[in-house]
Amino acid sequence: MHLTLLPLLVAFFGLAFATAPSARASCTLKPLGQGKDDSPQFIAAMQACSTVVIPEGSTLNISTRLNTTGLTNRHLSLQGTMRFNPNIPYWSENGFPFPFQTQITFWILGGTNIVVDGGGTLDGAGQAWYDAFASNSSLLRPVTLTLFQATNVLVQDIFMINSPEWFNFVNEGKNVTFNNVTFNAASTSSHGASNTDGWDIYRSDTVVISNSVINNGDDCVSFKVSLHTTNVLVANLNCTGSHGISVGSLGQFAGVFDIVENVTATNIRMSNAENGARIKAFAGSGVGSGMVNNITFSGFIESAVDNPVVIDQCYETSAADCEAFPSNVFISNILFTTISGTGTSSVVADLACSPGARCSNITVDNLALTGPSGKAEFECQNVNLTGNAASLFGACTVT
């Protein structure tokens, strides 16, 4: 990973990073042991101390939910481990609820000027959840960490493992940076670690995600919106087993106008994945609407990816419903450039827009993608393409 990129990210966005504050008081937490719940002492320390240290070699047992919102100038030096006790009945009933896509979370962290670092581990103890979800698809599974109404936050140099569902949910955040974070969600049974997105960005502005390694079972990064998500830079990621860098899904909820704009994803390695660079939107009766504008996917290197380049305006919608009720999400000013590698089928790029000029100013440049046999097919519909790779697609049907 290219850690030297971080100053460029600061310059790109003009971010004011949170830095570790001068300590008014420093607290070091040690596990209570014997299965006791360390949540109350952790919450008390975060409220009272400028710097909270979890020492290397120690493991806090987090058995009840963590509300550490409204903080100012806090530094969590996570050198050891915080492990969330997999008490499924407790968390299903008591995880903090978020109405968007019916989520719950172990931990909400919010406020101003917050740093989380230290080289330690957040352990979601997800295996029990992966197994339980296989027989109960309605089971609510917790997000490991939710940044809620947080401004000037830096999360860096930590490990996150085995989240029950999404690893990180950035909800109504501003000036949030993740740097040098390593994720791993790996099931040890036949039941996969599903829906384990690395990051989901929602109603947030000015977010940087950089220099990180993700091995998971869903989107590497997803821009999920209800209202507005803007000004996001994703750079230098290594994603394995994921569903891609995904804008969307958009237009899911009736009466809601989604906006995602000003997003750059660059220098991404994607391997053994379902998708690479993707935009997805719902169609059909009774869905919402929205706008996707000014999105750049650049410098992707892909290996064994099912769908390396995708626009899908018929996401999880039948073909008949798509034709009768086209997507109400308008997609414009999109650039796919310098994308190379291999797909798992001969179709290496599929740009499928709804009729009615829903997609405009879509530029495709410098694609060097092949299928497993060396053959490459490029498909598109209802889109006017520009760029030097547009000839690869042939004539798109534009209605």
Rank of each mutant, 00 (worst) to 15 (best):
H2D: 15
L5Q: 05
L6M: 09
G14C: 05
G14I: 00
G14R: 00
L15M: 08
P21G: 06
A25C: 14
L29K: 01
L29W: 08
L32E: 13
D37G: 08
D37W: 02
S39Y: 07
P40Q: 05
P40I: 12
Q41T: 05
V52C: 08
E56I: 00
T64I: 03
G70A: 08
L76S: 13
L78H: 10
G80F: 02
T81K: 01
M82L: 15
I88H: 02
E93G: 11
G95C: 11
L109I: 13
G111Q: 02
D117C: 05
G120K: 12
G124I: 02
A125F: 07
D131Q: 03
N136C: 13
R141N: 01
P142S: 09
T144W: 04
T144M: 14
L147I: 07
Q149W: 10
L154W: 12
F159M: 05
I161W: 03
F167Q: 04
N168E: 08
V176Y: 15
T177I: 10
V181C: 07
V181E: 07
V181I: 13
S194T: 09
S194M: 03
T196F: 04
R203L: 09
R203G: 12
S204A: 07
V208C: 08
S212N: 09
V213R: 03
I214D: 08
I214P: 07
C220G: 15
F223M: 11
K224C: 07
K224F: 05
S226P: 01
S226L: 06
L227V: 10
N231G: 11
N231I: 03
V234Y: 01
A235G: 04
N236I: 02
S242L: 03
I245M: 08
S249H: 06
F253C: 05
A254M: 01
V256F: 11
D258Q: 00
D258F: 06
E261L: 06
N262W: 12
N262V: 09
V263Q: 03
R269G: 07
M270N: 06
R278G: 04
R278V: 02
I279V: 13
A283V: 02
S285P: 03
V287T: 15
S298T: 09
S303N: 15
S318E: 01
C322L: 02
F330V: 14
I334F: 08
F336V: 02
F336N: 06
I339H: 13
S340A: 15
G341H: 03
T342Q: 12
T342L: 00
A349E: 01
A352V: 04
S354G: 12
A357F: 10
T363L: 11
N366E: 06
L367T: 15
A368H: 15
G371F: 08
K375N: 10
E379H: 15
E379S: 14
C380W: 02
Q381K: 13
N384A: 14
G387M: 00
F393D: 14
G394L: 11
G394E: 13
